[in-house]
């Protein structure tokens, strides 16, 4: 119970323990804790950045998709227009061709009719000459009376 030299020893022992703890223990633990805190903070900021990057990439992808869609729509529209154009052109060509064919056919018909008429005319001339021969009972010189006959044929 009495105060004696133990007091001094105990005080010194206390300081020795404080010194050891301060020198060899405390900085390690605090250092490890602070290092871990820093690591966690870095990890969090990395995660934040990664999330932002992901959002950016998402936005970029959406943008690309929108652009591609717009492009596709443009292409489709142009193709449609072109198709219409082609169809129109084909129709026009067909019409022109039909007209041409019609004209050729008409010309052909005309020519055939003309030929038929010529043939008919020549046959009529022959017939008329044959008739006249029978009537006159003599040969008429076709060359001498050609002008007359021609006038007759033109009159048909």
């Amino acid at each position: 119970m009495d105060i004696n030299v133990t007091l001094i020893i105990q005080g010194l022992a206390f300081f020795a323990v404080v010194w050891v703890v301060m020198k060899f223990g405390w900085p390690h633990i605090i250092g490890a804790i602070e290092e871990r805190q820093q690591k966690i903070a870095e990890g969090l900021s990395h995660a934040e950045r990664a999330r932002k990057e992901l959002a950016d990439a998402d936005a970029r992808v959406a943008d690309e998709i929108r652009k591609a869609r717009a492009e596709a729509a443009g292409i489709l529209e142009r193709a449609n227009a072109q198709a219409l154009q082609i169809v129109d052109k084909a129709r026009e060509e067909a019409v022109v061709e039909a007209m041409r064919q019609k004209a050729i056919a008409a010309a052909d018909i005309e020519a055939q009719a003309h030929r038929a008429r010529e043939e008919l005319r020549s046959q009529v001339a022959t017939l008329a000459i044959a008739g006249a021969e029978k009537i006159l009972q003599r040969e008429i010189d076709a060359s001498a009376h050609g002008e007359l006959i021609d006038q007759l044929v033109a009159g048909i």
Binding site: M1, I3, N4, T6, L7, I8, I9, Q10, G11, L12, A13, F14, F15, V18
Partner: peptide, 11 residues
């Protein structure tokens, strides 16, 4: 022991 507690308190 009062020596211990007083020793620490004086520290």
């Amino acid at each position: 022991d009062l020596n211990t507690t007083l020793g620490m308190a004086l520290g």
